[in-house]
Design a binder for these strands. Sequence first.
DNA 1: ACGCATACCGATAGACAGTATCAATTAAGC
DNA 2: GCTTAATTGATACTGTCTATCGGTATGCGT
Lengths: 154, 154
Amino acid sequence: MVATNFKHRGHDHPAPISSAVVDDIVAQLARQGYRDTEPRRLVISAVAAQGRPFTAEDLCAALPCVGRATVYRGLRLLVETDQVCRVLLEDRELRYQLSHQGHHHHMLCAICGASADLIDCDVEDILRAAADRSGFRMSGHWLEVYGRCGECAD
Amino acid sequence: MVATNFKHRGHDHPAPISSAVVDDIVAQLARQGYRDTEPRRLVISAVAAQGRPFTAEDLCAALPCVGRATVYRGLRLLVETDQVCRVLLEDRELRYQLSHQGHHHHMLCAICGASADLIDCDVEDILRAAADRSGFRMSGHWLEVYGRCGECAD
DNA sequence: ACGCATACCGATAGACAGTATCAATTAAGC
DNA sequence: GCTTAATTGATACTGTCTATCGGTATGCGT
Ligand SMILES: [Mn+2]
Ligand SMILES: [Mn+2]
Ligand SMILES: [Zn+2]
Ligand SMILES: [Zn+2]
């Protein structure tokens, strides 16, 4: 049986969630046919507010007023549209973070959890070449680098 | 409440699981103080029998006579002692496969599931250098390459 | 502004992978 | 053989994520 206990939304002209980042992402989504809804704006806003890689559960906790399924769906949509990228911790825990343009990789600090983009590093080409040598045609890859950031170095 | 329904083992001099690979791995474990048990040999034997990366559940299914927890524990032990390595599929499914000496990476065929070792490829050095440039001290990494093997190429 | 079609939402239940418990069992050493 | 600690396995449990599905709001055409 399915619940009929439903929360009424929008009764009280809620303050529209808005900021440069949020508006930008919402616009990107609109261009692809996705609607501009308040729960979705809340998710995006919370994503943008995170300082470092976060888990889906982090978001759920930060958005008690948004349904769990909605948070997960929103996150998935943002990943599919390349607005957010997924990072994998050493223990296989999955985290997310705002994507800063294009495909790239991250270094994750095992101490403080900070992440830094891996720049000046074209592993892709090297990997593709190595794959070729084995008769493989590379179509994708997953790469995470773990270590200590400057601040957490001993 | 905990079950007291316990299976009697060893009543009937079971044929000892033995083969070159199994004996070798069991010996390695013995050297590190781990006991030589039949369930453990069964796990190792099943691991060795797999032709390509397999899941923990695959093993459980292949070993209905071995407890679920035992399979997982055995697998973890083999990973910790570097006898087996873990590979990660694009959908984050975790698989295992016999390790062929030392640290290295794999290419995984998205079609047939085969894996090939990535050789002649020292990404490590490149990654470490790139990390340095960002003030990171690299301590580990996770790398998987996906594509199509020679046989599955169109 | 009004109405419609449908994308979207959220409470809930369920699927799934992996782990914690803990009494019973057994390998290894003396 | 006896002792002791490692190991096992049935089971319960945890945490993450997905499937359902009736109710709801958005975007668009009018
Ligand atoms: Mn990224
Ligand atoms: Mn390997
Ligand atoms: Zn740090
Ligand atoms: Zn293949």
